[in-house]
Measured scan of single mutants.
Amino acid sequence: SGEEFIAMYTYESSEQGDLTFQQGDVILVTKKDGDWWTGTVGDKAGVFPSNYVRLKD
């Protein structure tokens, strides 16, 4: 389980282990570690910068 966040911006990365997503995607955040959080979008999982998302209303 985790908290749902909304992507405010598209995040694209070629780094292994990074979670890429489109603006407006719902991200289920499973771990918060400083500026880099872990989460899932659909069947993808990985880390992403926390300043790209906001808490879902």
Rank of each mutant, 00 (worst) to 15 (best):
A7H: 01
P49M: 01
K31V: 08
L28M: 11
T10G: 13
D18Y: 14
K44N: 03
E12I: 12
G46A: 01
G2Q: 12
E12W: 12
G34A: 07
Q22L: 08
L19V: 05
K31M: 01
T20V: 09
Q16I: 10
G46L: 02
A7R: 00
E12F: 08
L28T: 11
I27Q: 03
L19P: 01
A45Q: 10
V53K: 00
Q16P: 14
F21S: 02
G46S: 00
V47G: 09
D18R: 14
W37M: 11
Q16G: 12
F21Q: 03
G2C: 14
F48G: 01
G2A: 11
S50N: 15
T30Y: 05
S13A: 11
K44W: 05
T40P: 02
I6P: 00
I27R: 01
D57S: 12
T30M: 08
M8Q: 08
G17L: 06
W36K: 15
K44P: 01
Q16E: 15
E15H: 12
S14N: 14
A45F: 03
G24F: 08
K31I: 05
E12K: 13
S50Q: 10
W37Y: 12
K56E: 07
D57G: 14
T10E: 09
E15N: 15
G34M: 02
G17K: 12
E12T: 10
T30G: 04
K44Q: 15
F21W: 01
G2T: 15
K56V: 07
G24K: 00
V47H: 12
E12H: 15
Q23R: 13
E3A: 06
D25L: 00
L28S: 13
T30N: 12
L55C: 03
M8H: 05
D57N: 15
E3R: 06
L19Q: 03
Q23L: 06
Y11E: 04
W37K: 03
D35T: 14
V26I: 14
E3Y: 06
E3D: 05
S1N: 15
V29P: 04
V26D: 11
V29A: 04
K56Y: 04
K32E: 10
P49R: 04
Y11W: 09
K56A: 07
S50D: 03
D57L: 11
E12A: 09
K32P: 07
T38P: 03
S1H: 09
V26K: 12
A7D: 02
D43N: 14
V29T: 03
D57I: 06
D43Y: 06
D25T: 10
F5T: 04
G17V: 05
G34K: 09
K44S: 08
R54V: 15
G17H: 11
L28D: 04
V41P: 00
W36P: 03
I6Q: 10
R54A: 11
T38C: 09
G42N: 07
V29K: 03
K31P: 11
A45H: 15
S50P: 07
V26H: 11
G17W: 03
D35M: 10
R54S: 04
E15L: 11
Y11R: 12
L19W: 00
R54Q: 13
Y52T: 03
G2Y: 09
V47R: 13
K32I: 03
I27V: 13
E4G: 01
L19Y: 00
E15T: 13
A7I: 02
E12P: 06
D35N: 06
V26L: 13
W36F: 08
T38S: 08
K32C: 11
D35Y: 08
S50Y: 08
T40H: 11
R54M: 10
E12V: 08
S50M: 09
L28Q: 13
E3F: 09
S1R: 06
V41R: 12
W37A: 03
S1P: 06
K56H: 08
E12L: 07
K31G: 12
W36E: 10
E15F: 11
I27C: 02
R54T: 10
F21N: 02
R54L: 07
F48C: 01
T38L: 05
T38D: 03
D35F: 09
Q23A: 14
D43S: 14
K44V: 06
L28Y: 07
N51E: 10
T40W: 14
A45C: 13
G24M: 00
V41M: 13
T10W: 02
Q23K: 14
N51W: 08
G2F: 15
G39I: 00
V29L: 00
W37N: 02
Q22F: 10
W37I: 01
L19E: 01
R54K: 04
T30I: 09
A45Y: 14
T30A: 07
I27G: 09
G2D: 09
R54C: 10
K31L: 06
